[in-house]
Design a protein around this nucleic acid. Structure first.
Lengths: 223, 223
DNA sequence: AATCAAATTACAATCCCGAATAATTAGGTC
DNA sequence: GACCTAATTATTCGGGATTGTAATTTGATT
């Protein structure tokens, strides 16, 4: 069971080398939460995966919920930060930003994270899951991490498309988020809909397709 | 706690009147699963909500997972069926169907269900949640209920837009599903993005907006 | 060297959950 | 009216789940 544990089983006492177990725990927790969700994940299993004692998790992170929050914030803030940076860069150049550029800037950080390795992909799934949960706590967490970057993007889109009312853009931004989360999460649905022909398509091509779709939707004429 | 129970507490023995407890259980389970997810829901609580003994749930539905499946299939098949009907109707009239009509036919059943009452809304949320779960069982369930209607819609869209390759349409269909699930589920995100101005917008107008967005995306020129 | 604090484990406590069984009541049937 | 069967409850069972406490080992500090 716990054979998957981190390389060297340690003995009690302060170690002088080896990886930070706190990070190992976060990584394994990320995988577990992504796969089974918050309620479906057992702290025991995380401990076993990380090759540490269960109490150590409590020692570092407190309660299970605290652990989840830490996992989420760790990468969530990375993404949010990257979005800010990319938008800044876009707005800094003299000419006005195109819609497709804004969309691309918004999507890119997550896209890259997804393909950065198993943990990046896990986080993306975890986050997609969280966006489907109606519990107050989940909502607060998402808001805390993502809200202000989203608002800035809505603003930027608004300036790029002055003829479309602000609230319409807000709504369309929600559509956008839904589409890309679902797509990133990809839980087999994509393959279903294309009869398995999707495997052939390259990563960047897929991102381009997504951006094209979303940009067209965002720019659609209002009734 | 269990004060919310079904009107009349029964005694053992076969009753001659009163509502079908099996249906009551399904309804309450629907609410519970939508709110807490599969793993986060306690069978005990469902029993309490329905005002029945826990063993009765097992008597009718077997295991917790079986119960979930029943809940999901009950309305899922309704939706799937309605989609088939609407598409048939669309294809039956002589003229070729417009993209926006196809999209509308696809969305309408869920939209109506969402606004049919608390249980309809709960099912929609439940389903959005299920679409974010990577577990094999969840995937199989979704496939079983929704797959063939989706395939027919992809086909119809393909015929409406002969210049766009089939696999592109499949991909865009996935975008569409993501966007509308997220939107239907609406877990406060919409309000966040529009700074609360969304409450003012009427239901049908919102659906129109969604259709407009999606149709524009679907028809976007390919690179 | 002696002590202190950090990191880790082992183990217990408490609670709660899903499943299962056995008992009970009432309606239908012949 | 005797009997069978369907519907329902009360209660138990076995197993984990998270949380919490106490002990142990080791590096750092003075």
């Amino acid at each position: 069971m716990a054979s998957d544990a981190a390389a060297t089983a340690r003995k009690p006492g302060r170690p002088k080398d080896g990886p930070e177990l706190a990070d190992v725990i976060l990584d394994k927790a990320e995988l577990a939460f992504a796969e089974h969700g918050f309620a479906g994940t057992r702290v025991r299993d995380i401990a076993a995966m990380a090759g540490v004692n269960q109490a150590l998790i409590r020692y570092y992170f407190g309660t299970k919920e605290d652990l989840f929050d830490k996992v989420f914030r760790r990468r969530g803030s990375l993404i949010s930060g990257a979005r800010h940076v990319l938008l800044d860069r876009l707005l800094a150049q003299g000419k006005p930003a195109k819609v497709s550029e804004i969309v691309m800037a918004y999507l890119r950080p997550q896209w890259d994270m997804k393909h950065s390795g198993p943990n990046g992909a896990a986080f993306v799934r975890l986050q997609a899951r969280l966006h489907a949960e109606p519990e107050e706590h989940a909502i607060r967490l998402r808001r805390e991490v993502y809200d202000d970057s989203v608002k800035r993007y809505v603003q930027a889109l608004s300036e790029a498309m002055p003829r479309i009312p602000r609230e319409t853009i807000g709504m369309r931004m929600a559509f956008l988020v839904g589409a890309y989360l679902f797509m990133l999460n990809d839980v087999g649905r994509l393959n279903d809909m294309t009869d398995g022909q999707i495997g052939m398509i390259g990563r960047d091509e897929m991102l381009d397709q997504l951006v094209r779709f979303l940009a067209a939707g965002l720019c659609a004429p209002t009734g």
